[in-house]
Amino acid sequence: MASKVETNFMRLLSRCETMAAEKTRDWRLEKYIDALQNQLGELRRSPSKPNQEVLANYNRKVEFLRGLLEAETMLTSTDKAAATQKLNPGRNSSHNCSTPQTKELHLQAKARYESEMRDELLGKSSQQDKGGVRQRKAVEEEEDDIDAVMQQHHKMQQKIADE
């Protein structure tokens, strides 16, 4: 049976994972993660502490959440995606695999930052303004561009013929 400190820790950890999964970030998440680290220290010092493997798993989860929070504060989407890629979600001690909540959180963050990076590269923000339709030049501008291209090709052909 878990001690009161461990129960409180697990409840706060679950709340932090839920908050991290939300699209909008809350200022309280950073404070909650700080409280998680404090509770983890208390849990290590308590007389009825769990075994080392469980403590290591808790520590990995807290470090993962801290890493997600740090990735969120980075300036470029490339840095965010790289930082998220390096994160290690906590492991489940019995199966040696990521817990479903942490794994899902990791995948969501990775997908969100990769999507931001893709949008940044492809200029999707301007396309969203037009309802997803590509912006096309006006017909007059196209005709001017075509005339300019045709003149350029004609000059190049003339130059080659002269040589």
Rank of each mutant, 00 (worst) to 15 (best):
R45I: 00
Y32W: 11
E116P: 02
W27N: 08
Q39I: 07
S125V: 04
A82H: 10
R45L: 13
D119Y: 08
E63K: 11
Q37K: 14
M19Y: 11
Q101P: 06
S125P: 00
L122T: 12
P50W: 11
Q127V: 08
L107M: 13
V54E: 14
A20L: 08
Y32S: 09
C16H: 02
Y113F: 04
K49S: 10
A82S: 11
N38Q: 12
A56N: 13
K80Y: 00
R118K: 10
L65C: 08
R11E: 13
D129P: 00
P100C: 06
R112N: 08
L68M: 09
L65Y: 08
L13S: 03
K61N: 10
H106V: 01
N38V: 08
G132H: 09
K80F: 01
T18I: 06
A81R: 11
D129N: 04
P50H: 04
Y58W: 07
E120K: 07
E22H: 13
S126N: 10
L107N: 14
P50N: 01
S94R: 15
H95I: 13
A21M: 12
M117G: 02
Q37M: 10
T102C: 10
T73Y: 06
K110E: 15
L40K: 05
S126Q: 14
T73L: 11
T24I: 05
S77T: 04
S125G: 09
A81I: 00
S48F: 08
R134V: 03
C97Y: 12
R91P: 04
Q128P: 00
E70M: 05
A21E: 14
N92F: 09
L40T: 02
Y32C: 10
C97T: 15
C16Q: 04
E17H: 07
K31D: 09
Q52N: 14
N88H: 07
K124W: 12
Q85K: 12
N57L: 00
Q101C: 05
S46R: 03
R118S: 09
E53K: 13
A138N: 14
N51Y: 07
L121F: 13
S46H: 09
A109M: 06
E42Y: 05
L29I: 02
L29K: 03
N51W: 04
L121P: 00
L68D: 11
K103E: 15
E116L: 01
Q37N: 11
N88Y: 04
Q101I: 10
R91E: 14
D79T: 03
P89T: 02
T73P: 00
G131R: 05
Q37H: 09
V133S: 11
R25V: 01
S93L: 06
F64C: 11
L40W: 12
